[in-house]
């Protein structure tokens, strides 16, 4: 049953997610897209685009949307014939995914908040984070590397125009956001308009 599996995977992701929203995107991409294939590569990329441009925590936006999509894509759910059944299951999946990602960290927070405050300046906590932070940067890198594929960029041989345009967009957006602090919302909309002008 997809709902139970969704609950287990998202609880697991929530518990081990250190390092903020972007680290969680990598985590979701690894567990849901790469390993389990519940959501396709291009669906996931679209979900990330929408999660970044809507209000709220990116991790929750992404979990909600992935929860919906994973349930709607599930063959068992698709075989349901009642009207609106697929959407209703999708809604249940999305709420379930976002709640699953929250409940374990909530318990951890209540149990350890006092401990962490007491040992905030301790060398033990500092050395643990000295190992953790660099590893999280590796995790962050996996999301963009895994999504650097034909589904998102087009094939260099079969669809050269799409490929060249995509590479150009990626380079300009990277430099603009990293060095010039481009606004993510406007950047996404402008790239979409460029897409309509070129491919529309």
């Amino acid at each position: 049953m997809i709902l139970l599996r969704l609950f287990l995977v998202f609880s697991y992701i929530g518990l081990f997610n250190f390092g903020g929203g972007y680290a969680m995107l990598s985590f979701i991409q690894q567990e849901i897209v790469e390993k389990r294939g519940w959501v396709s590569d291009s669906e996931f990329t679209d979900i990330v685009a929408i999660s970044q441009t809507t209000p709220g925590p990116i991790g929750i936006n992404c979990a909600t949307y992935v929860g919906y999509t994973a349930v709607v894509n599930d063959p068992e759910i698709q075989s349901l014939s009642a009207p609106y059944a697929i959407h209703i299951c999708g809604i249940i999946g999305s709420v379930l995914a976002s709640v699953s990602v929250l409940w374990l960290p909530f318990i951890v927070m209540i149990l350890v908040s006092k401990l962490i405050l007491r040992y905030k300046e301790s060398t033990v906590l500092k050395s643990i984070f000295g190992g953790l932070r660099p590893a999280i940067i590796g995790l962050l890198a996996t999301a963009s590397l895994s999504l650097l594929n034909v589904a998102n960029f087009g094939s260099p041989s079969a669809d050269t125009k799409h490929f060249i345009v995509s590479i150009a967009i990626a380079i300009v957006v990277f430099i603009g956001t990293y060095l010039k602090k481009f606004n993510i919302l406007y950047t996404t909309i402008i790239c979409g308009v460029i897409g309509i002008l070129i491919y529309g």
Binding site: V48, H162, S166, A170, I171, V173, T187, T188, V193, I194
Partner: peptide, 13 residues
Amino acid sequence: FFMGVRPAVVALL
């Protein structure tokens, strides 16, 4: 629209 957005998402990540 999303064909234009997808490479940007990869760069943003």
